[in-house]
Design a binder for these strands. Structure first.
Lengths: 240, 240
DNA sequence: TAGTGGTCTAGACCACGAC
DNA sequence: TCGTGGTCTAGACCACTAT
């Protein structure tokens, strides 16, 4: 392998990129056991230590799960993992748990300006727009609008049911893995439709969370705008 | 060094802990150049690779800064670093910048229940309570209440002025380094006093951020409750 | 040119899980 | 007992910085 490329990238980074490519291309499926360090080292032609550094990097990116004595596995977008990785609303007292969902609306639409810029589409491109309300222990927690491009999620509207954990659905049905997401939080007043969906007064302060979720190639996949009641729940953020 | 402790901890973790202790004890001061890998390896009696793993771990914890060709330095709680590490409010359009501060109130008080449990004090213990308003480009952005234990910050009230970046102050004046913090976000309605400080209507939705900041030993140091106007600003959170 | 951290290799041994 | 990942070592060379 070339150690002295023009735009210098360390060997282990090149190996990492090469292995991430196998995930993107679906060569390695979620949950699958991948070859051992020694096999990969032989196959790619670098030392075991370099393979290890690449695998460690992918592990900290939550792409792989390594288990001593068993092997290295492709991470799976399971509820338990998603819960901690992407869901930051936790009850003020008690452990985080996954809210239930009820679909309010699912329909094809044309991308608005915000949707187009978030999802890197042209204005008016076909999208799917899903509106759902999520409840925790029976009480309405949040109402959210999810926008997906039709080009990326063909036939989305034909689904019989939409599961609680849509990231698992994206992976199984369209082979799309969410790698990371960025969120913008604001405080807003409940609109009449928010109030109706959440059973609160119009004008109630809500936590607005605007999320853009990215795939393994850092291309935007999903735009999600949530409005949350935060009376008994908070958004948790760790700094440092 | 003992490789086979009863509760097994890897050697590089033991080395890391030992080096963090030098930071806690003030043996290594912020900004200081620490010994090279080779010197530390000789001194501690482990290989250079093990030292490297310990230093890398501390670098990802933002405790050290390593510069190829120059050496390894103790991280300094500078504005530019704090800005990205601990300040997550950014203008909707434009780059993050540090808001100005104006002290509204600074007085000794007795810890409330919330303060006591957050700071690990007994109820009624003496604390300092600081209230200040912060502005961005001249416009009020947030009002916040900072609580510090008097035991940890003796004579805090005698300060002539309180700088914008209080974490630098904690470090210089009391030798306390903030290592990490956890925040709880909620949407709340502006109280009359919030409204007066921020120049908004009572009931305006505000983003409430409750932060507990911890020192290098993970002991709570500061409780800070901020109420923020989020019309032109949002709280940014990266997931994954 | 000297010294630093960054990368890469090779090999040893340990801890863990499955058989 | 075997194979896996986890740790530790030792040494080589590269890239960057200061002198």
């Amino acid at each position: 392998m070339n150690h002295t490329v023009f735009a210098y990238r360390p060997l282990y980074v090149q190996v990492r990129d090469q292995l991430v490519r196998r995930l993107i291309d679906g060569e390695w499926q979620p949950g699958q056991l991948i070859p051992s360090e020694i096999e990969l080292a032989r196959e790619i032609g670098v030392s075991q230590g370099t393979i290890r550094k690449a695998l460690d990097a992918m592990t900290t990116e939550n792409l792989l799960i390594r288990r001593q004595g068993r092997g290295t596995f492709v991470a799976r977008p399971e509820e338990s993992r998603i819960l901690f990785q992407f869901f930051r609303l936790v009850p003020d007292d008690g452990k985080p748990s996954f809210p239930d969902s009820a679909i309010l609306d699912l329909r094809p639409a044309e991308a608005t300006g915000d949707e187009a810029s978030a999802l890197d589409l042209a204005l008016g491109q076909p999208v799917w727009r899903i509106e759902r309300v999520r409840t925790l222990a029976g009480a309405p927690l949040l109402v959210e609008t999810i926008t997906l491009s039709d080009a990326r999620f063909p036939r989305f509207g034909e689904l019989a049911a939409i599961p609680n954990n849509v990231y698992g659905l994206y992976s199984e049905r369209w082979g799309i893995t969410i790698g990371r997401a960025s969120e913008r939080l604001k405080a807003v007043a409940a609109s009449p439709s928010d109030a109706a969906a959440l059973g609160c007064a119009v004008g109630t302060p809500l936590l607005s969370v605007t999320r853009v979720a990215l795939d393994l190639e850092s291309k935007p996949v999903e735009l999600r705008v949530s409005r949350c009641l935060t009376e008994a729940v908070h958004y948790s953020s760790e700094l440092g």
